[in-house]
Amino acid sequence: MPTGVHLRDVRKQLFDAAERVLLRDGPHALTSRAVTTEADVAKGVLHRHFADFDDFLAEFTRDRITRLADQAALLRAAAGTRTVAENLIDALAELFDPVTLALTSLVFFRDELRVRLRRQNGLPILAEARDMLQRYLSAEREQGRIAADAEVESLSLSLIGAAHLLLAGRRRGTLPETGELEKMVHTVTADVLQRRLL
């Protein structure tokens, strides 16, 4: 990249490049050189905008978490519409897209990144996903669409854990099959939906 050329929205350009590297080559291949090469910028560009590569990764992950907050608001607004299972299936399919799955692995295996992102309870990204489902299920419980005594925190953990296990082992870049998620969601939620009808 020639010196003096102004880059528009460098952060977005670098984040988009990081996503492409994650999708194509996986978390182990995500290095500062891989990102700058993919973004077609000089290596120094990344270090002019971020303190170090872990700072870049932390901001990249926070950007995904911000997107998750937008998804959480939409899911919360969906309470009372369609069926509970349909809402959960769509939310989990969107949540565990290939980039988020790869980022979750990256956060799990990079100690320094995990320290920078650490929340009090849980692994970053998965903890926000749990909170998203918990708020949604609480709203559905308030509307009487799941059992009044449903333990939404445990239910959220079960859904996140099961979906992550189901989808994390997929071939890189492949999307989840709806049938797999449907079966899992119906199994996990069967009790609270049946007890609501009693």
Rank of each mutant, 00 (worst) to 15 (best):
S158C: 09
L113T: 07
T104H: 14
S158P: 00
M184P: 00
I125P: 06
L155Q: 11
Q143L: 15
E142L: 12
F50A: 00
E59W: 00
L198P: 03
V21M: 06
E151P: 13
R145M: 12
L126N: 01
L198A: 15
D55T: 01
R141H: 05
D90L: 15
A168W: 02
E128A: 01
I146E: 05
A129W: 01
E180A: 13
A163Q: 04
A85Q: 15
L193V: 14
F15D: 01
A51I: 01
R20P: 01
A79C: 06
T178S: 04
T178I: 13
T66V: 02
P98V: 14
F96M: 11
P2W: 01
E86V: 14
R11F: 07
V84T: 13
T178D: 03
L106Y: 01
A91Q: 06
M1Y: 11
R145N: 06
L198H: 11
H47R: 05
T100V: 14
A129I: 03
H47G: 04
T100P: 12
V152E: 11
E128H: 09
A29Y: 11
V188Q: 05
H28Y: 12
R130T: 03
E128G: 07
F96G: 11
A168H: 12
A17F: 02
R114Y: 13
V115Q: 08
G173F: 08
L23K: 02
S32Y: 14
D131A: 12
A72V: 00
A17Q: 10
D111Q: 14
S156C: 06
A51W: 01
A58P: 01
A34Y: 03
L155E: 06
K12S: 12
A147V: 04
I89D: 13
V10G: 09
L95W: 12
A34R: 10
R135N: 02
A73C: 00
V152N: 05
A91Y: 05
I89F: 08
R8M: 07
L123F: 09
A102C: 14
S32N: 15
T174H: 10
H186L: 09
V21H: 00
L181P: 12
F50N: 05
L193W: 04
E140N: 08
A51F: 00
L166Y: 02
A162K: 11
P27I: 03
I89P: 10
V10T: 10
F50G: 04
A91D: 03
V41D: 12
F108L: 15
E177V: 14
A168C: 13
S156W: 09
E128S: 03
Q71R: 08
L193R: 15
A93W: 13
P27A: 14
D54C: 01
T83W: 09
L75W: 00
R110K: 12
R67N: 06
T3P: 15
T3H: 07
R114V: 02
V192W: 04
R62K: 10
V41E: 12
A150N: 11
L193Y: 08
V188W: 00
